[in-house]
Design a protein around this nucleic acid. Structure first.
Lengths: 337, 337
DNA sequence: ATGAAAGCGCTAACAG
DNA sequence: CTGTTAGCGCTTTCAT
């Protein structure tokens, strides 16, 4: 910028104003500056701008893992709004670790992101690191894995209803011994899905059996664990389920693989219905009935809320929680008994 | 920082030096400053640091789309190295558009990323936007979709060999009428995979038929197009193939879906083998033989190279291209004829 | 061992 | 309509 001021024999401030199309500058000078800038393809130093203006026009994202289709869809939604509003996006992954989450959150905060979009790691129970930042004035919006110990905007799906509808469908289709495969992590999402499952059973006078509720560590990533639990549940246990409702993506697909290995036919021997966002549900063997979460929309809504938080000057005290519906897709893995 | 200088009755420069553990500062003062900083949980303003030091400790990533497992694996690899080296990662998506690519690249460059990691969009043929930045001194490393019109480090997979081995396997298994499903985009990747396919046919004395090479727009994202081309190829055409080699992820999975729709049995009526990184290959119907690309490793290698480029002071003139092997996974979709 | 001062590139209040 | 000046938060040379 100094170069162009010198070249045109103007002051830096005039150039700055001309570049930002200030009303104080004559059309003639503006044109002069703009033309010169374009010719020498001047680009403002955004770092300097950020320092001066105290904001960076960037938003930070914290998710568990980007190689999960649900999160990549969320990020896509975030990006679609953020970019059109002139924000760029810095993301980090927790890999479901609390320590990494704290580290990433602090890193982003001190990189001067203007706001934070976060889905908590499954390990996280204490959210002081986020409360502190919020008190310091950083706008934060939660999505997916949220915490009720902090008051801010949130975007979630209707986990209860998703599980309730799925379970009800299984019952109506003729399955009465429905096991629930879920995560050991004590998160809001886990609890809501479990509650939806239990409520659907109760509402249909199907007894709830503790031994039909199975908990997996690492969200089903430990294949051996899934295999041993399923073997116990389906082959060596006493009461055998005739349907499985899986609460998480990885548990769903790993279960599908294990059932193949164990030569258990779906849905002849057992029905399978799971939360997952895979686009391949149609071409799985068998095609898989799923509870789909609107990841893209979730990212969009969260970002809209965050940007509005960033833009409002006065401190916000009224917060909103958007609840998006899940979608039940029925395919062959839950055909009539 | 000023606050802490004032509180401790020191100068800002002393504090700065103490914080960076300068040898000029006495142990006593260092301890004083460090303790105070920790107690008041002081965090340096990274923006100011960047402005002063002329680098931002961040690297920019440009990929086609994050909701593609291959790219999310690459990004995971990038992140694993970048974070351990103290860099953070800003990413953007081209959605295979040249215009978006130019926009994103320039945005990143002027956000002062210290280096750029890019996989070109399929639309891109002119890479002046990257040449210009490279001349201005920005370190750039290409991966996956690279260009040979620019001299810098690159990481690719052995596309030729991947397609060659896949085709050879089909021939050895008894399939002689192998069609190649690929993208209309005239990229290096497309050409190499096609060349591998053609060479394998020639080496096995199988005639190459032009009508067996089918080109799809939008990388197979247009389902109707895939359906109409496959219908023509498999049902209404004269010479009918007995096997399909698909060169891209989306084409592979869309083809699988269409074959189901058309009630064409795999591999009884036709074998299918495709480039894809899906983790669900085992549980597809039928389980899918695939050519897998090591995305994670690719991201790691590219990032190592980029960081070394960033760290070397003198201009680098010797550039390297790393070629990673693909892996052929044989499953039921290519069982013996 | 510590501090004063300049400056990274930009913006904005204020003056003229 | 244009210019002077100060300052965003930090680092670094040079002086003390």
């Amino acid at each position: 910028m100094n170069d162009i001021a010198r070249a045109l024999d103007l002051s830096a401030s005039t150039v700055s104003k001309a570049l930002s199309n200030s009303y104080e500058i004559s059309e003639k000078t503006k044109k002069l500056v703009l033309d010169y800038a374009k010719a020498n393809n001047y680009r403002p130093n955004l770092i300097a701008q950020s320092l001066k203006q105290g904001h960076s026009n960037s938003i930070g994202i914290v998710v568990a893992s980007i190689d999960n289709l649900f999160f990549s869809q969320v990020i896509n939604g975030i990006e679609s709004i953020a970019h059109s509003e002139g924000y760029n996006v810095i993301f980090t992954q927790t890999h479901e670790s609390y320590d990494l989450e704290v580290k990433n959150v602090n890193h982003l905060a001190h990189r001067s992101v203007d706001g934070l979009l976060i889905s908590l790691s499954t390990e996280t129970t204490n959210i002081d690191h986020l409360k502190k930042l919020q008190q310091q004035g950083l706008p934060i919006v939660f999505f997916d894995k949220v915490s009720y110990e902090i008051d801010t905007h949130k975007v979630i799906v209707d986990n209860f209803k998703g599980a309730y509808e799925a379970t009800t469908h299984l019952i109506k289709t003729g399955y009465k011994n429905i096991a629930h495969l879920t995560s050991i992590a004590d998160t809001y999402v886990t609890r809501e899905r479990l509650a939806g499952y239990v409520q659907a059973l109760k509402d249909n006078d199907v007894p709830v059996k503790e031994e039909f509720i199975k908990y997996f560590s690492k969200g089903g990533r430990d294949v051996e664990e899934v295999k041993s639990i399923l073997t116990e549940l389906l082959l060596t246990g006493n009461a055998k389920p005739d349907a499985l409702l899986s609460a998480f993506d990885k548990i769903t697909t790993t279960t599908l693989g294990i059932l193949h290995q164990l030569k258990i036919k779906i849905p002849q021997h057992i029905a399978l219905l799971g939360f997952t966002n895979t686009v391949l549900a149609d071409v799985l063997n068998p095609s898989l009935s799923t509870v789909y979460q609107p990841g893209f929309e979730m990212g969009q809504e969260a970002t809209k809320m965050l940007i509005s938080l960033i833009k409002t000057k006065r401190p916000v005290t009224e917060f909103e929680t958007i609840v998006l519906p899940t979608q039940l897709f029925l395919r062959n893995s839950t055909l009539k008994k």
